[in-house]
């Protein structure tokens, strides 16, 4: 697939390695049953209960097939009708896609924002179609939003927390209740203080730069919904940047991605973010230059 610039890749590598050491993430991937793919969905999901065994009617080695199916979340052992998939496998796939699509077009509930004491500002995205076509407009707040930030937010905070729906409102709904308190605890444990948090509707990652210009924080963390996949339509990323300002290079941001049940566990992610932010403040840098 299309590659990111190499520096970004190195960054991702390093964070992945770090995560592999710190978090039991990889184990959880392996333990997942091959058909329980909506890892973001809590226990009431019917498919999790079923965890169907392989559908091949007379495999040469049933035991081997079970073992292989358990070795990957890929949809294998699904069998066929002629050359086409069986009906349940086909519909299950379409269900997972439906969840992902609805996640893109969903909205974060007002109650959720109120619960965490977040007021809301808009980017210039306008509407969802425009949001998808014009990432540049999701990187700049509206004039009204700008005024609101300047009126309500403390300037020059040590840590600025921002939450945004991004490409998955579902990711915020599902993960914020775990990530947010863990993040606040972790800031306290690391002796860091934070400014006035808020929510950005229709945000892209680089909206960090505009906010950075306005509020001049030392470090900024943006909790944002990722592009939904079929394994999880509710995966969140935390993008972090030391002194975010206009024209910041992608490679200057540090990212903790894949935050969801079944990926990077949300509570542990919240705790880990605090440590990363402290490192940034100590080293006065972020992104590829940050030593973690």
């Amino acid at each position: 697939m299309m590659k990111q610039p190499i520096d970004l890749q190195e960054l991702t590598d390093r964070i992945m390695k770090e995560l592999q050491e710190r978090l039991p993430q990889r184990e959880s991937v392996r333990q997942e049953s091959p058909h329980s793919r909506e890892s973001a969905v809590p226990a009431e999901a019917p498919f999790l209960e079923e965890a169907p065994s392989p559908m091949v009617p007379k495999p040469q080695s049933p035991e081997q097939l079970e073992e292989w199916c358990a070795s990957t979340p890929a949809r294998i052992g699904v069998w066929r009708a002629g050359t086409r998939p069986l009906t349940r496998a086909m519909l299950k796939f379409r269900c997972d896609h439906a969840a992902a699509v609805d996640s893109v077009y969903g909205e974060v509930k007002r109650e959720t924002l109120e619960h965490f004491g977040l007021f809301s500002v808009d980017t210039q995205y306008g509407n969802i179609e425009n949001y998808l076509k014009r990432p540049d407009m999701g990187r700049v707040l509206t004039d009204q939003g700008t005024e609101k930030l300047l009126a309500e937010c403390r300037r020059n905070p040590q840590v600025q927390i921002v939450v945004s729906d991004g490409l998955s409102a579902n990711a915020i709904e599902r993960n914020l209740p775990d990530v947010y308190p863990a993040l606040l605890d972790s800031l306290q444990a690391n002796g860091l203080n934070s400014g006035t948090p808020f929510f950005v509707k229709g945000g892209r990652v680089a909206v960090m730069d505009h906010i950075g210009e306005l509020l001049q924080p030392e470090v900024l963390v943006l909790l944002i919904g990722e592009r939904p996949g079929l394994v999880s339509s509710a995966s969140m990323s935390a993008y972090m940047c030391y002194r975010p300002r206009k024209g910041m290079m992608e490679s200057n941001r540090t990212v903790l991605s894949n935050i969801h049940q079944g990926g990077t566990p949300p509570v542990e992610a919240g705790a880990h973010i605090g440590t990363l932010l402290r490192n940034m403040l100590e080293q006065q840098t972020s992104g590829v230059k940050l030593v973690i």
């Binding site: 793919r37 990957t72 949809r75 699904v78 998939p85 796939f93 896609h97 592009r227 079929l230 394994v231």
Partner: peptide
């Protein structure tokens, strides 16, 4: 890719079934 769902790259493509079907 299995059932057109790439569980690593998080996108959907064409499946083993699809190629077999196109051939037939």
């Amino acid at each position: 890719v299995p059932m057109a769902d790439d569980c690593m790259l998080n996108y959907q493509s064409t499946s083993y079934h699809d190629i077999a079907t196109l051939r037939e």
